[in-house]
Amino acid sequence: MALPLANWLSQDKWQSLALEPVLDIRSADDFAAAHLPNSANIPWARLPLRLHELPPAGTPLILIGVAPVLNEAIPWLQCRGWPIKGAWSVNPEPIPDWWSHGPPTRRLWAPTPFLSEHIDGIERSLGGPGRALDLGAGTGRESLYLAQRGWQVMAVEQRPELLERMQVSAKDWQVTIDGMAMDLRQASAEAFDTPFHLIIQCRFLLRSLWAYLDAWTVRGAYYLLETFTAEAAKFGKPKNPAFLLAPEEPMNVLPNWVVVIDQQRTLADGRPLRGVLLKRAPTL
């Protein structure tokens, strides 16, 4: 049951909650008119297509909205794995003057840390954002992140339903992502008309694509690959060696590329992820 927001929430009280995952499910117009500082906005009508923008299932959420919608949203989210820490309805009373106004700026999702930790250095090296290609983009968190930073993004994904969800997010965040439905197993050197400054491939391994990196990029471009290593098979999926990166890969088949970063991190479930950032030699 949602509690009336204005009945208890002061500015001091809010400051103790502002770092929590706070999701306002009112319409975009109502949110822009007035909202709690540092809250995220995904309108209830859009939430089924934007679930990929929530933090991982199991993360407790605080919901803000109007009572009838909240009473529908709470069990819907709970049965999909998100506990509700609190839910408060916005009363039709005068909005406090300490509330914020305008479109959302907070997101409850994040791209892979390997990208967010190194994108500043990539952009400095390139002189700013350029053209990026996201291979096996899924629902497009990394594509959306790059587009928000000013990159021109081409996102390639085999499943049209995931591209649809990506485009819903892009529209609501007011950015542009060029989506392409393609089975990358059928890719060729001529797959794209314009070369890219950055290619990313996250939790998706298809070795046949390495043969096309030179054709798909400008000189001095970057290739960011993050995927599972062989040790991941001990903890569950993936187990197929075709989807597990060997220690010598991909450097052993990319003579025109040099290693910038090669590092490993471990997920909460114990599976190791290896991130490799390569730069194409500028004179080859």
Rank of each mutant, 00 (worst) to 15 (best):
V175P: 08
A268E: 07
A246R: 13
D214M: 06
L77C: 04
C79V: 13
D12Q: 13
R265M: 10
V253S: 15
R203Q: 15
A230R: 02
V253H: 12
A67D: 13
S143G: 04
L245S: 05
L162Q: 13
Y145E: 03
L254F: 01
H197L: 07
R107V: 11
G128V: 06
S188P: 07
A268T: 08
A132K: 03
N71S: 11
P272V: 00
C79T: 14
L245R: 01
E20P: 03
R271L: 04
A191K: 04
T266G: 08
Q152S: 13
Q11F: 10
W44F: 04
Q264K: 03
Q167L: 15
P48A: 03
L126H: 02
S89D: 11
Q186E: 11
L61P: 01
S100T: 08
L198C: 10
P55N: 01
G121K: 11
M166D: 11
M251P: 03
T59Y: 00
L245T: 02
P75G: 00
E142S: 15
P250Q: 08
F31C: 00
R80M: 03
P129W: 09
I200C: 15
V175A: 07
A18N: 07
L163H: 04
M154N: 12
L36K: 04
A33Q: 12
D30V: 04
L213V: 05
F243M: 11
L162V: 04
M182H: 15
S125W: 10
T112F: 12
D193T: 13
A230N: 08
L278H: 06
T59K: 01
E248C: 10
W88D: 05
L61C: 00
P94N: 13
W14Y: 10
P129K: 07
M182C: 13
I42H: 01
T217N: 08
K171M: 11
P21K: 02
M166G: 12
M182K: 11
L108S: 11
S10Y: 05
W257Y: 07
A40S: 06
A67S: 04
F31W: 01
R107K: 12
W98D: 05
G127T: 07
I42T: 07
R107M: 10
V260I: 05
G179A: 14
W210H: 07
L254D: 04
T139V: 08
E231S: 03
K171L: 13
A33I: 06
A268W: 06
W109F: 02
W216F: 04
L108Y: 12
K279N: 14
R149Y: 07
H52P: 04
A230E: 08
Y223V: 04
F192L: 09
N256L: 04
W257F: 00
P75K: 01
R159I: 09
W8S: 14
T229F: 08
A215V: 06
F228P: 09
Q78E: 14
R185M: 12
R265E: 12
E226Y: 07
E231H: 08
R141D: 09
P21S: 03
L23V: 07
T194C: 13
P48D: 07
I200F: 09
S39K: 08
A6W: 09
S116P: 03
P21Y: 06
A230M: 05
L63C: 00
F31H: 00
K239W: 07
L5G: 13
A137R: 06
S208R: 10
I200T: 15
A268H: 05
